[in-house]
């Protein structure tokens, strides 16, 4: 980074630290904070979509779809997320490659050869000729899907509860106006459910933030990975030898998470206040009274 960093062994004090904190690995460490935030930003809407699908399926009039929705939410909620992450992404990867193998390869060679799972070169995901960033994106995508499936189940649970909580009378009024079931869902149910869903969803957001250390299991180099990697004792064969500093790195990560939750709580508090405006709930009533004394 700085010109004087070329020979770290002669540096000490502040100069050493400034060089140490700007090495390539530290840059990757700082970047990983961005990766975590990016993943959160991508995962949250997708998980919400999964959740919406799950909740709608659980409410479906068609029995098999309803069973599917119920089993999906119950199953995923019954399994610790960590165990889910330990085998589902590999299974997902193999499943996709197997489908592509069926579609793209003309050979009849079996996919399972002894212990090996081998598909033809054209079916590989991503293709082994593709550059490194494609592999990175693919790994990210798998991680996003795995997270979305798990948190989608929780979101489905929350949204299902919220849909049930929308006052029956409101839906019946809509029906009385001659709206079709589809219109009732779109115009009344979905806009009205948010105020009931928000407390649950904001808690889910908090859980999602705190589940990000598990990204490491999915092959994403997240902040915890780098904190452990950089904090570990470095012997004199490294340019910047230091003893076991994991404690300090983990404290930094702790502060990051506390900040994230603190900011989220503030923002979500505002959104809640916004959404309760004019709602027929206790909080909405309290707001109305506070404004018009």
């Amino acid at each position: 980074m700085f010109s004087y960093c070329s020979d770290p062994s002669v540096l000490d004090g502040f100069a050493w630290l400034s060089c140490y904190l700007t090495t390539g690995t530290h840059m990757l460490f700082y970047a990983s904070f961005g990766v975590v935030l990016l993943l959160l930003a991508i995962t949250a809407p997708i998980a919400l979509l999964f959740g919406y699908g799950g909740a709608m399926a659980s409410r479906s009039r068609i029995a098999p779809i309803r069973w599917f929705g119920r089993i999906y939410t119950a199953m995923v909620r019954g399994v610790p997320d960590i165990i889910f992450f330990l085998f589902v992404p590999i299974a997902l990867d193999q499943g996709l490659e197997w489908l592509r193998h069926k579609a793209l390869c003309d050979s009849d060679a079996p996919v399972r050869q002894g212990n090996d799972f081998v598909v033809c070169a054209a079916a590989k995901l991503p293709l082994s000729t593709s550059p490194e960033w494609v592999h990175d994106i693919y790994a990210m995508t798998l991680a996003v899907i795995a997270f979305s499936v798990v948190f989608g189940a929780f979101a489905a649970n929350v949204l299902y509860g919220a849909m049930q909580a929308v006052p029956r009378a409101q839906l019946e009024t809509a029906e009385a106006y001659g709206m079709t079931p589809r219109q009732v869902t779109r115009r009344i149910l979905v806009p009205q459910m948010w105020t009931y869903a928000l407390p649950g969803l904001s808690n889910l957001w908090m859980i999602l933030i705190k589940a990000t250390p598990l990204l490491f299991l999915l092959g994403i180099e997240d902040i915890v990975y780098w904190a452990r990697e950089l904090g570990g004792a470095k012997t004199s064969s490294f340019a910047y030898p230091h003893p076991d500093w994991r404690l300090y790195y983990f404290l930094v990560v702790l502060v990051f998470y506390l900040l994230m939750t603190w900011v989220s709580e503030r923002v979500l508090g505002r959104v809640t206040a916004r959404l309760t405006q004019g709602q027929a709930t206790l909080a909405g009533e309290a707001q109305r009274k506070a404004v018009a004394p």
Binding site: T23, G24, T25, E229, G232, T235, S237, F238, A239, Y240
Partner: peptide
């Protein structure tokens, strides 16, 4: 990438 000196991540992140 975590077993020096066999394999590890150097300061440049490689």
């Amino acid at each position: 990438g975590a077993y020096p000196p066999y394999n590890f991540i150097n300061e440049a992140g490689e």
